[in-house]
Design a protein around this nucleic acid. Structure first.
Lengths: 180, 180
DNA sequence: TAAGTGTGTGAGTGCACACTTACAAACGAG
DNA sequence: CTCGTTTGTAAGTGTGCACTCACACACTTA
């Protein structure tokens, strides 16, 4: 008995987030995430309910990590104005997604929301983050909306690689966005 | 000779945008777009350079349609302030994507930007739209950035189906967004 | 030490799908 | 009425991949 199943599951999920982030749900074979976790494909299927169950579980950990990071950011600005707390949250998020995996996974998950189980997971994830931002920052609707709008813009910037484009339109879109 | 190849190509591209919008690049077989266009799979492969060539061509027509719509919107507010022109552009865009195909296709394309040819097509598309907005509205960088940030938020709202969610966090995110 | 339980895999199976090829029919030109 | 060209397809081919199953090893307990 080398490891407990529960420990294996978290290893697999870390690999899964990375693998799915790069190539998406349909284009990443579960052999790829098995290889990333250093175990056999067959065992992945024993640990999770099919490829879909694996992806949904990966989505859950993805949003979990984001929520934790944002909460920590809010902690650092505790007692400040809503604007200051939102700023701290944005900074924490920018730091978190420096390695791109969590950001790209969200984009991939958004693209396969035609699968109901995935749509549910994504909705639950955004519910958690949005209520967190709303409650902990004490921000009004417009501020929360702006927070997410620029977050989504950040996703576009990274997926399309706009920070590498020197042209003026790209500079306009990336101006002032932290760390993409 | 029932039809010219060129006429067939546009028929196929219309079907392709629809089909790819729903299930994405990897999950939609070219038999699906062939069926949508009412021709055989084999002929699609004669009309386009593989599935990838088909997707890239579909991306081009997608951004083409968006550019045309936005330009028409700008025309309706010609002579107004940048803010007014941007507003007209946003309205035209909201109207365009009422059927969701063009919006969902953009999300799907963004998710497969790990394929260089697709990344190039998407970048070219956004270059076209961004320069169009910048030039025709005479807007400054911050205004252009805001325009795209809320556009991306609109994509999130539609893919996740937030307009169907009655909870307060969802209302905050969808407040004032036109027609998603 | 025998039986039971949890961890792990190799070797398949079956199917979906990208792409090809060989062939046929419609049309235009001379 | 041929002959070349363009439009169109039916019927493959090969491969990649989700998922399964029989089996083996590790460890515990009685």
């Amino acid at each position: 008995m080398r490891s407990t199943a529960e420990a294996r599951r978290v290893t697999v999920l870390n690999g899964a987030v990375s693998a799915f982030a790069r190539t998406g749900f349909h284009a990443t074979p579960v052999t790829a995430v098995a290889a990333a976790a250093g175990i056999s494909e067959a065992y992945v299927f024993r640990l999770f309910a099919g490829k879909l169950g694996l992806f949904v579980a990966a989505a859950d950990t993805c949003f979990e990590r984001i929520a934790v990071a944002i909460e920590a950011g809010a902690e650092r600005a505790a007692g400040g104005s809503p604007e200051e707390i939102l700023d701290a949250m944005g900074g924490a998020y920018a730091e978190l997604i420096a390695d791109r995996d969590l950001l790209l996974f969200q984009v991939q998950a958004q693209a396969v929301t035609d699968i109901p189980e995935i749509a549910d997971a994504v909705r639950a994830g955004y519910r958690r983050i949005a209520t967190l931002v709303q409650d902990r920052a004490g921000a009004d609707d417009a501020q929360v909306q702006r927070f997410f709008a620029y977050g989504q813009l950040c996703h576009l910037i990274v997926t399309v690689g706009l920070e590498q484009v020197p042209e003026p339109w790209a500079r306009a879109l990336t101006a002032g966005i932290r760390h993409p």
